[in-house]
Design a protein around this nucleic acid. Structure first.
Lengths: 233, 233
DNA sequence: CGCGAGCTTGACGTTGTTCAACTAGAGTGG
DNA sequence: CCACTCTAGTTGAACAACGTCAAGCTCGCG
């Protein structure tokens, strides 16, 4: 894991976090935050925030794709969600002093910008619009987690896998064809079922010409039918 | 549904929301909020906040027990959680202008205090500690929803029902014996399974002397074993 | 060429749903 | 006060969904 003091790079100039801040934060305030940030590169599989540890920084993900991973008492993994850059990671830990309840792990080569949590809190206290932004992101995260929750809670495997494929197409890869960043095992941990069940279900979707599968490469042929499957459960 | 302009009652004098506010809000500010509040009584089954509608108030629940209910496209219900007074309802809708994504329904005779959302926002903008409190409640809600999520996502019915019983005992009724406020059907909507499965599972727990059931009356005999069942899934 | 990790497949047993029949209790109207 | 009805709860059996297991496959890599 390579760490370096930040120098203005092209990424930084286009940094969306900066853009967000500038709407509500003065240049001085931003510089105050900015001085303490460091950039990190993460290889596929590398842990960005670790479950069970206290963290004293947020990570603004500049580039890459990550999974939110929860490991239970029996060492079984559950993927809560998969999300792509740009996004702010670690919001759930802002105010609750407790440890992180899940890990965030890169599933593609990624780059993040570490933001000092104490400094951010200081700014938030002194800047109400900035805090409003953070509050908005936080409640937004809560709202979107509800839908995940609903999907897993009372849909069968068909519907859950349809939901995951829809999320990957629309939000993560934003393309009808993509190379899956996760293994079949991880897909199963996302869908909350066995990996064999994932394989069977994907095969069925392929046979029904809803998707085209070849190893890690997936092409969505009929998004409407996926949405229909998601709806009936 | 009975509405009346608020008059200071004993409830109000002990109002926890007021107590919370007073830590971070001036008496004038509190009065400003307070003047616009109205109290409501809710009968069992009555809807407090309705899914699909925009709301312009939060509800501070003074007394009673409520369920968070999501109705899907096929009119099937899912109970997201059950919680008791005192608590603040509607936080998920504070900033996202969208409609409520679930309903909140009284499952016991309840009383709530309606707080004008616009006025609350105004205060929050002008009072950073107060906003910090709200942010804390919001992220706290997110964190606790994760655990629900995990329970439903990769535990079998045994484990989920154990989780529900534990939640009811520890948090909702805060007693080893209680009279269930929900029907078997609703229990099933909470556990994400069929009502017959709920009945069978509760019967098994009874036969194993883990709980004692008689209609709606439930007594927890062996909390440790419930916790163990929850852990193995 | 051979090894190993991830992937795939089908058989089988377990878990959970659906269905249909039955029971108990709570109104309701004569 | 007794039918009658309606709803919630209960039970068991048939059936479908899903997980587990064991075997074989593929592909990249040494």
């Amino acid at each position: 894991m390579e760490t370096k003091n930040i120098i203005l790079t092209e990424d930084c100039l286009e940094c969306l976090f900066k853009t967000t801040c500038n709407q509500t934060i003065s240049q001085e305030d931003f510089d105050f935050l900015f001085q303490s940030t460091t950039q990190q590169n993460y290889k596929k599989g590398e842990v960005i925030l670790k479950q069970g540890l206290k963290t004293n920084n947020l990570v603004y993900l500049l580039k890459g794709i990550v999974k939110f991973n929860y490991e239970d008492e029996n060492k079984k993994n559950l993927i809560l969600t998969i999300t792509k850059a740009p996004t702010l990671l670690g919001l759930a830990n802002i105010l609750n002093e407790d440890v992180s309840i899940f890990s965030i792990v890169a599933i593609e080569e990624s780059r993040g910008c570490l933001i000092d949590l104490d400094k951010l809190k200081m700014l938030a206290l002194n800047n109400r619009l900035f805090m409003l932004n953070i509050l908005k992101m936080s409640t937004g995260m809560f709202r979107s987690s509800i839908f995940n929750f609903i999907s897993l809670a009372h849909k069968q495997v068909n519907g859950r896998i349809a939901d995951i494929l829809i999320n990957l197409t629309k939000n993560v890869y934003q393309n009808n064809s993509f190379i899956l960043s996760i293994s079949r095992q991880e897909f199963a941990e996302y869908a909350g079922c066995s990996k064999e069940n994932v394989i069977h279900t994907l095969r069925n979707f392929d046979n029904d010409n809803i998707i085209k599968i070849s190893g890690k490469s997936i092409k969505i042929l009929n998004l409407d039918r996926l949405i229909k499957i998601s709806q009936v459960g």
